[in-house]
Design a binder for these strands. Structure first.
Lengths: 249, 249
DNA sequence: TAAAATAAATAACCCAGATTAATAGAGGTC
DNA sequence: GACCTCTATTAATCTGGGTTATTTATTTTA
C-alpha cells in the first residue's frame, strides 16, 4: 500500500502509468516493528530507503543527559531516509511510535529512478525539500511561538499532511502519541502540554481523546497557530516527462 | 571567487577539471547588497540560484507581531536557494547581514549540471542535505539545550563551517552579527545573550570583540555545547564519474 | 573631532513554563 | 473482574530566561 506516497507526490506533479508502476514496485520487502523499536539508529548507514506503509514514527535525537528531542513526525507515505543515499550515515534516529510496517526500497531502485524516471526523481526530491522546509518551520515553532500556538501549529501541520496523503476525508485523524511525546517534539513538559490541550478544548478548537484528534474549528486553530500552509509547497507544478518545469510563472 | 563552494564540495567528493570549470563559470552575474537588504523575499520565485560570494546572510521569517526567527546563517560559498529550483516559491526570506556580494547562477546552469555533470549534481544535492541536517539540529539546539550550550553550539558549527570552506586556518573568524541577531537565531533575548557571552569569556573558552570571534579552547567549547560534527557530514565519499557511490561500506 | 547613532553591558524585577508530587482514568492481561 | 501499568489530570512551588530601564562603549556620520 504505497498509495499515500503516490497521493502526496501527485500534489507536486502528474505521474504516468509507468512511473506509478515503478514506484509501486519499489519496496521489495516489508518489515514490521513494534512500538518503541528503532527503524534506523543514529550512525547507521541503511542499505535501503525506508517507507512508512502503516503506523507512525518520529525523527529523534538524544542528548547525553537522556533528554530527547523529536525533530519530526513521519506518517504513512513518508520516506524516512532518502537523504542517506547521499550522506554516509544517519545523524539522528527514527523510532516507531506505534506498531509500524515499513517498506524497504533498495538503493538500486532509487538510482534507477534518478537515471530513467526524471519526473519521478524530481518528485522525490520535491518531497525531500518539503521535509527540509518542515524542519525549518519547526525551528520557528519551537523558537518563537507560545506553548498554545506551538501545539496548534503542529496539529494544523498534521491535519494538512494527512489530507495531502489522502488518509482522511474530514478533520479527524488518529494521533497515537502521548502528551509526553508531544512535549518532546514541542519542547514543553507533559504537564504544560496537558494545560494547553485543556485550553484548546475549552476554546472549542479541538477534541482529543482515545488517540484521536478532531479539529473542530480548523480556521480558529490556524489563527491561534498563525499557520500558513505555504511551507508545505502543495501547489501543483507543471513538469514535463524530463522533469523540467514548464510554464514556471 | 567561487572557491569556498569548491572547497566545501571537495569534502564530499573529488572533482575533475571540467567539473571545476563548469562550477566556476556558473555564476553569470554578481549583485551587491547592503546590510539589511533582502537577497530574496518570502513568496518570491527567483529565476536564478544565489551564491554568497562575500559577506554574511541569514535565513529568516517574521511572525505577525514583528518578532523574527533566524533559521540559519549563510556564509561565503553557501547556496541560498537551490531548493527553489524544485519548489515554486520561497517560504522564508534571506537577508544580508553585512555588505554582501552574491553570484547569480541561472537555472539553466543548474539543469545542465544535473543532466551532464552527475558527480557535481550529487555534490550539490549533498550540500542541500547538509543544510537540512543543520536545520534539524537547530531544532535540537533551540529546543533542548541551555542558553550557554546553545551559544556554544552555534559557535562550534560556524567554526567548522569556516574551516570546511577554507576561509580560515586558525580559530578566529569574523562574526558581524550583533547580540540581538544572535538572540533571534537562538531564541534568547539580547540581554541574556550578553550574560551568556560573559560566562563563556570568563571560562576562557572564547574571545569575542569587534566583530571577531576567537575560539580559545575548541575542545572546551565543544564540551559545553555537546557538539558532534557528524551532522555536517564531512566524511569524504568515494563517488565515480556517474555520481554513483563506490565502496560504500 | 564632535555629535549622533548603534551596540554592549549591567541591574532590578517578573513570568511562562518547569519541576515535583499526588490522584484519577484507561487499557491490558490473567 | 481484580490487578497492573501506562497515561492524563491537577495542584503547589520554583527558576531560567524575559522585560524594562539605564549606563557605557563603539561606530558612523558630518
Amino acid at each position: 500500500m504505497i498509495d499515500p506516497l503516490l497521493e502526496k507526490l501527485k500534489h507536486y506533479t502528474d505521474l504516468e502509468k509507468h512511473e506509478i508502476r515503478m514506484l509501486r514496485a519499489a519496496p521489495t520487502q516489508e518489515k514490521r516493528l513494534e512500538k518503541g523499536d528503532y527503524i534506523i539508529k543514529e550512525g547507521e548507514n541503511p542499505p535501503a530507503v525506508h517507507l512508512i506503509i502503516d503506523g507512525w514514527a518520529c525523527r529523534c535525537k538524544m542528548l547525553s543527559d537522556g533528554r530527547e528531542q523529536v525533530m519530526g513526525y513521519l506518517i504513512k507515505g513518508d520516506l524516512c531516509d532518502l537523504h542517506v543515499t547521499l550522506l554516509s550515515r544517519m545523524d539522528h534516529s527514527i523510532r516507531a511510535m506505534t506498531t509500524t510496517t515499513v517498506g524497504m526500497v533498495p538503493e538500486e531502485s532509487i538510482n534507477r529512478i534518478i537515471e530513467d524516471f526524471p519526473r519521478l526523481a524530481r518528485a522525490l526530491f520535491w518531497s525531500l525539500m518539503v521535509d527540509e522546509a518542515i524542519a525549518r518551520h519547526w525551528i520557528l515553532n519551537v523558537g518563537l511561538r507560545s506553548a498554545e500556538a506551538r501545539v496548534a501549529h503542529l496539529f494544523c501541520e498534521l491535519l494538512v499532511r494527512f489530507q495531502v496523503a489522502g488518509l482522511i476525508k474530514g478533520n479527524t485523524l488518529e494521533m497515537p502519541m502521548t502528551q509526553a511525546n508531544l512535549g518532546e517534539a514541542l519542547s514543553l513538559t507533559p504537564v504544560h502540554i496537558n494545560r494547553v490541550l485543556q485550553r484548546l478544548r475549552q476554546k472549542g478548537l479541538i477534541i482529543l481523546a482515545r488517540k484521536e484528534l478532531t479539529v473542530v474549528d480548523p480556521e480558529g486553530l490556524k489563527e491561534v497557530a498563525e499557520f500558513d500552509a505555504v511551507y508545505l509547497h502543495l501547489d501543483k507544478r507543471l513538469v514535463n516527462h524530463k522533469g523540467e518545469l514548464i510554464n514556471k510563472k
